[in-house]
């Protein structure tokens, strides 16, 4: 029964919060209307969602989210310094990172995280989804840079998505 009414509970929750935020109010009418939307939209669009959206280990994901936010803050300051200094000493470089993570959604979150943290941009994914090509603004040591990304971002993501 819950499957019939809420085929995608996370999507429903997301839509509900999204509509309330968009209207910027918690009036009773808005809450009821957004609840109707949150129930109706997932039912009508469920043929297009091939796989179920699931979130295993939400606590671990929240911890990962906090780490990423902190890194964005810290490395923004670092990159701002790099940009404002003289740019002749920067050593840009491309590195191919071997991926252990298999889940497609996990890979896309990893690529987005790499792009969001300053100093690195994910450029391309090879066809076999085994390597992610990353551009570094200032590359000192390719080995340790790749290792740091693997340890810091890929490990928690693999733990979250390994069971899917």
């Amino acid at each position: 029964m819950t499957n019939r009414v809420f085929p995608h509970p996370i999507l429903s929750l997301f839509l509900w919060i999204l509509w309330l935020m968009l209207n910027n109010s918690t009036a009773a009418g808005d809450i009821i209307f957004s609840l109707i939307l949150a129930i109706v939209i997932p039912i009508f669009t469920s043929p297009y969602w091939e796989e179920k959206i699931v979130l295993h280990k939400p606590l671990l994901f929240a911890k990962f989210f906090c780490i990423v936010m902190w890194d964005i803050l810290v490395s923004n300051i670092v990159v701002a310094k790099l940009i404002l200094d003289k740019n002749d000493k920067l050593h840009p470089g491309f590195v191919a990172i071997d991926l252990d993570i298999k889940h497609p959604f996990g890979i896309s979150i990893l690529a987005n995280t790499i792009s969001l943290t300053p100093g690195t941009v994910s450029c391309d994914l090879t066809v076999d989804r085994k390597q992610l090509i990353v551009h570094f603004l200032d590359l000192k040591d390719p080995e340790s840079a790749a290792q740091e990304i693997k340890n810091r971002y890929e490990k928690p993501l693999m733990e979250v998505y390994e069971s899917c």
């Binding site: 964005i72 990159v79 701002a80 940009i83 404002l84 740019n87 840009p92 941009v121 603004l137």
Partner: peptide, 25 residues
């Protein structure tokens, strides 16, 4: 800072770092 990066960094790949990061923050 993002726009300064766009303005003064040499080469497209390096320019990409300025705006997409600093502007987001």
């Amino acid at each position: 800072v993002g726009s300064i990066g766009l303005y003064k960094l040499p080469g497209f790949y390096m320019r990409l770092h300025g705006p997409t990061k600093a502007t987001t923050l």
